[in-house]
Simulated assay, not measured.
Amino acid sequence: MTFVLVPGAWHLPSAFDLLRGELDRLGQPSLAVRLSTAGPEPRGGLREDAAAVRAAIEAVDGPVTVLAHSYGGIPVTEGAAGLANVERIIYLAAFVPDVGESMFTLLGLPDPAETDGLFPVNDDPRAQLYGDVPDEIAERAVRQLVVQRIQPWVDRVTQAAWHTVPTTYIVTDNDNSLSSELQERMAKHCDEVHHMPTSHSPFLSRPAELAALMTGKAGV
């Protein structure tokens, strides 16, 4: 089993370094996807991010479990559809859209008039994203945040992998970014639900616990 890890908005693949280290210790290979809409020079929209997810999965010779965090649930829902080697999707405090939905529609927001710009990080990302993360790790994570395009938050999903792929939702109960109430509503699309008493980023606050949960769900 290979774990394909897809980050949320403003995050680079390096956000998963601690989690990947724990997966290594469990003997499980992993890779983290770089989304084109986040970074020093962001480009594209949902289609480009979904294509990156799809390419990463297709590059694996064998079964895959996909972990989608936060916004990453949108391109995973689109990009993992129809791929025979995807055995499970784990939505971690993530958006779970159906066909025709977007991140904005799931949040109950109207589409903005301008979609070609950037969405700023909250004024206090430490509190929003990393509330229970140790100070040194949280400070490093804040320094590594990058700019994020608005376009993929507005783009509608055209196919939904969770209709045919087994799914697990992990609700982060003490989340200051994505409310647990909204997470639980979206989790109704999934086959099973687990809770972690963490902030939005358990891959930084409880990477060993998260890795154990992931491998258990993947049956390895």
Score class of each variant (00 low, 15 high):
residue 1 M to F: 13
residue 3 F to I: 13
residue 5 L to S: 05
residue 7 P to C: 08
residue 10 W to A: 00
residue 14 S to I: 14
residue 14 S to Q: 15
residue 26 L to P: 06
residue 31 L to V: 15
residue 32 A to K: 06
residue 35 L to P: 04
residue 36 S to L: 12
residue 36 S to G: 12
residue 37 T to A: 13
residue 37 T to L: 01
residue 39 G to S: 10
residue 41 E to I: 08
residue 44 G to T: 11
residue 44 G to V: 08
residue 44 G to H: 14
residue 45 G to S: 11
residue 48 E to A: 07
residue 49 D to G: 10
residue 49 D to N: 12
residue 49 D to T: 10
residue 55 A to V: 00
residue 55 A to S: 14
residue 57 I to Q: 06
residue 59 A to H: 11
residue 61 D to P: 04
residue 63 P to S: 11
residue 65 T to K: 01
residue 67 L to F: 05
residue 69 H to K: 07
residue 71 Y to N: 06
residue 71 Y to F: 13
residue 76 V to G: 03
residue 77 T to I: 07
residue 78 E to F: 05
residue 82 G to T: 10
residue 84 A to C: 00
residue 86 V to H: 08
residue 86 V to W: 06
residue 86 V to G: 04
residue 91 Y to C: 03
residue 93 A to H: 00
residue 94 A to W: 04
residue 99 V to T: 10
residue 100 G to H: 10
residue 104 F to T: 10
residue 105 T to I: 09
residue 111 D to N: 14
residue 111 D to I: 00
residue 116 D to T: 15
residue 119 F to E: 11
residue 122 N to I: 05
residue 123 D to R: 08
residue 126 R to E: 03
residue 130 Y to N: 02
residue 130 Y to R: 01
residue 130 Y to A: 01
residue 130 Y to I: 01
residue 131 G to C: 02
residue 132 D to H: 08
residue 132 D to A: 03
residue 134 P to T: 03
residue 136 E to Q: 11
residue 136 E to I: 02
residue 138 A to T: 00
residue 138 A to S: 04
residue 139 E to G: 07
residue 140 R to G: 06
residue 146 V to R: 15
residue 149 R to K: 15
residue 152 P to I: 12
residue 154 V to Y: 11
residue 156 R to V: 09
residue 156 R to G: 02
residue 161 A to W: 03
residue 163 H to R: 15
residue 163 H to W: 05
residue 165 V to W: 02
residue 165 V to I: 14
residue 167 T to P: 01
residue 169 Y to M: 03
residue 170 I to L: 08
residue 170 I to Y: 01
residue 172 T to C: 15
residue 172 T to M: 04
residue 173 D to H: 02
residue 174 N to C: 10
residue 175 D to T: 04
residue 176 N to T: 05
residue 179 S to V: 12
residue 179 S to G: 13
residue 180 S to P: 07
residue 186 M to K: 04
residue 188 K to R: 15
residue 189 H to Q: 14
residue 189 H to P: 01
residue 191 D to T: 02
residue 194 H to C: 00
residue 196 M to F: 15
residue 204 L to H: 02
residue 206 R to V: 05
residue 206 R to K: 12
residue 207 P to N: 08
residue 212 A to L: 14
residue 213 L to K: 14
residue 213 L to E: 13
residue 214 M to T: 03
residue 214 M to V: 10
residue 215 T to F: 09
residue 216 G to M: 09
residue 217 K to Y: 06
